[in-house]
Design a protein around this nucleic acid. Structure first.
Lengths: 362, 362
DNA sequence: CTGAAAGCGCTAACAT
DNA sequence: ATGTTAGCGCTTTCAG
């Protein structure tokens, strides 16, 4: 009678908590089958006679049995849990991405464990270690700078399967067998800036949050340089605004007070763009009448405001969904990241949303 | 030699994956102590001689041992994992709340499992079941309508410890021993509307997303009625906009075309408010010159736009942090939710942000 | 098709 | 202070 030993546990109220404390052994007992058969009735129904399976399921329902995933996971030596590390959810880009991640993981029967890093490398390491202790089967993550990431190096060393989202693996990263899902940051930024140029702009300034720390900001800046160069225009030095969200009226004012005041801003993300537009308004400037602003990300909010934010649109939830799919595939084809020749950067199509905050120069 | 049996597992590459596959038994062996002592060196260092503990830790580092939380959790019969169910992260309110939840949980050594419900009751049940299978010790959640929530009833029945965030437990909920952390929705909304009235507005219309489905929308509407009544004004019927984010220019136009056109809108959340402001602009109306708009939530973005969104500010990340703290306390004081007399609604202070999109009526 | 039994990695009595 | 041992709930050979 393997059921009676549970009474040693402190203050377990027998029937007050249905499903809590009912084990597969109890179900087996109630269905008058062995533990093994009960297990099979759930995991491998084809290995058990129809009628027997029925009995087991009935007993399970009657006892409101809830399988304890912990036991299964421990035994199976794989958790079917995916770790997800994103910089923050307060930037809608990542919130939208999470939607894709969750949908994709759920659809494949995988669970998720989310942590945020706040773009802080120290926290990145700590959180990853934390995910690893939970024995996640793999991870989807966005790091500040993939090219200089201690945490990715560690993951490579331990050959933990992972897929980057948004960070775009470059030639150098490919050697490590890294995988990534993103848009083509450089080409898409170039396209966006070309649209600005096509609208008549010549003095275009890039505005970026932590420029040095973000690989994407740098890639997008390179795209800007490409576009400017292609049209024989001088690339201006980027302006770095301290925070991703705070208003920086002072810096903007200074910029607009210079001799050759820019006629357009290319902000490396939408949140920043929205902040810049507000700063501009505060200075009495109208957008796009006096200055044009182009963002990057394509968060839903951008389409909501008036005028709509012109921007380079990434398929955020798709990026998340594909990252999971990619990771799952990697898991299936053996734990070793390095054997998959199809690895590297998966580039998803971007689109341009123009009009709105982009117009002709004054 | 309990270490050699692991070789039966399929394709385990011995030293390629440090930490992966190294068990406490290996560490014990290397440190020449028993499994129990090795365990104690980590969990109860005071029960072990200094020098011994040292040896164990060294061995652990040398083998890059990473504890498998699964084993510990299974044995401990508590996972130290908290489930979190939020409607969506794409509304910044919940993203901000998550920040508080994560910080608070991490600080207390708890892990998190996040799911989103999309305000869909069916998905709510499914996701909660999912969390329960993972044996979360308790949950923090926000449901569409706490008063009519199947999932909360289930949680009550099974006496799973949980704390509501944003949903405000009312007298009826208190009987079930429910806990919640929120602002005082009704009083704060009332205050907000009074500010509108103080600015000179008389014809104030409430705009809400899914009104019938959201308890908070209803409570905030009640606050609006209180304010109107207190000033002898007629409460107008609320306007329900289908989506939380979509633009609804047509409906707004219709509203503004009526004889007694409202001079102010009270939107039951900030995202909605931002949408309404854009719709108004599209109709050629200026905010707050022609119409005033008051939001509710206090998302960071609202302070960023120009003019800044007038709104009722909730301490979102605090709500999350307190919900976790509350839950942890509940877990400590025994699993039974119903014995805690201190239960009920924890109300956090709200603030008002006026000016910006609220001005005098035309 | 079903059962018995051996663990997955860890912790906590219970002995020394 | 340390070792021995018995499981946590589940899956899965290996035998019948």
């Amino acid at each position: 009678m393997p059921t009676s030993r549970r009474s040693v546990l402190p203050s377990r109220i027998a029937s007050a908590e249905p499903g809590h404390g009912v084990t597969l052994a109890d179900v087996a007992l109630a269905a008058k089958v062995s533990l093994a058969t009960a297990s099979r009735a759930f995991s491998h129904p084809q290995l058990v006679r129809e009628a027997t399976a029925q009995r087991v399921h009935e007993a399970a329902k009657r006892l409101s049995f809830r399988p304890n995933l912990l036991g299964a996971k421990l035994r199976a030596q794989q958790t079917r849990i995916l770790g997800v590390m994103l910089p923050t959810l307060e930037n809608a880009v990542f919130a939208e991405c999470w939607r894709g991640i969750e949908a994709s993981a759920m659809a494949s029967g995988y669970s998720l464990m989310l942590v945020t890093s706040g773009y802080d490398p120290a926290r990145e390491s700590e959180r990853v270690e934390y995910l690893l202790r939970h024995r996640v089967d793999g991870m989807v993550l966005t790091v500040a700078d993939a090219a200089a990431s201690i945490v990715l190096d560690q993951l490579d060393r331990e050959s933990v399967p992972y897929v980057l989202a948004y960070n775009q693996v470059t030639a150098q990263g490919t050697q490590h067998g890294r995988h990534s899902v993103s848009v083509d940051n450089r080409a898409s930024a170039c396209e966006g800036v070309k649209a600005l140029i096509a609208a008549g702009h010549r003095r275009i300034v890039v505005v970026s949050g932590a420029f040095m720390a973000s690989d994407r900001a740098r890639q997008r800046f390179a795209g800007y340089e490409d576009a400017m160069r292609a049209h024989g225009l001088a690339a201006l030095p980027p302006v770095c605004l301290p925070s991703h969200t705070a208003s920086n009226t002072a810096q903007i004012r200074e910029l607009m007070a210079r001799a050759d005041t820019p006629t357009a801003f290319f902000c490396t993300n939408d949140l920043l763009a929205i902040g810049v537009i507000s700063d501009l308004k505060r200075l009495g400037l109208r957008v796009p009448r006096d200055v044009s602003v182009l963002g990057y990300d394509g968060i839903a909010l951008g389409a909501l405001v008036e005028p709509p934010l012109a921007t380079v649109v990434q398929p955020n939830s798709e990026i998340g969904a594909h990252a999971v799919r990619q990771l799952l595939q990697q898991l299936k084809s053996g734990d070793n990241t390095h054997d998959d020749a199809a690895g590297g950067a998966l580039l998803l199509p971007h689109t341009l949303r123009v009009g709105g905050t982009v117009g002709a120069p004054p």
